[in-house]
């Protein structure tokens, strides 16, 4: 039995996750992770084949910071607005201070002429830990079901 308070706090973490990305608050989004974190986006094809190639792999929070700095200052990408719809989270279990959490997501993307489409959908397979500053992601694996990426992949999913 997972404590209601913990469950609600994890719900809030996921809500903040989607809201920060959708508002392009990447620097705030970064603070949802602990320093010793892993963030990766994985094509479902590779996950099913047991192959290690990702679409994005940050093995610690510094690599996430680098990705954001690069997006802000050293990359050009499609001008877009995202909207995440994240399902109710499923807390699969607790081991020590760590919760195994999954949720499905759908992410729509609109361009700057107002045309949009379903850009990505899949599953978050995550590890959440409680810190003095509330729950944070220690690991987040985005498994993408539509792994043939439309256009390009710039901002995180």
């Amino acid at each position: 039995m997972i404590a209601v308070e913990a469950r609600l706090a994890i719900d809030d973490l996921f809500a903040d996750y989607g809201a920060h990305l959708d508002a392009d608050r990447l620097e705030d989004w970064l603070e949802l992770f602990v320093e010793d974190c892993v963030y990766q986006i994985v094509p479902r094809e590779n996950a099913e084949l047991g192959l290690p190639v990702t679409l994005m792999l940050c093995e610690n929070k510094d690599m996430l910071r680098d990705r954001i700095v690069s997006l802000r200052q050293a990359n050009e990408y499609s001008i877009h607005t995202d909207k995440h719809l994240i399902s109710k989270v499923r807390i699969k279990g607790k081991a020590g201070d760590s919760y195994a959490v999954e949720a499905n997501y759908a992410m729509y993307q609109a361009d700057n002429e107002g045309n949009g489409s379903l850009y990505s959908f899949g599953t978050y397979v995550d590890e959440v830990v409680f810190t003095d500053d509330g729950p944070k992601f220690r690991a987040k694996t985005v498994i993408v079901d539509n792994w043939s990426i439309p256009h390009m992949l710039s901002t995180p999913i």
Binding site: P43, P52, V53, W147, S148, I149, P150, H151, M152
Partner: peptide, 10 residues
């Protein structure tokens, strides 16, 4: 072989 990435470019 380490794996695959795919994308559709318009």
């Amino acid at each position: 072989v380490l794996g695959y990435q795919r994308q559709r470019i318009h």
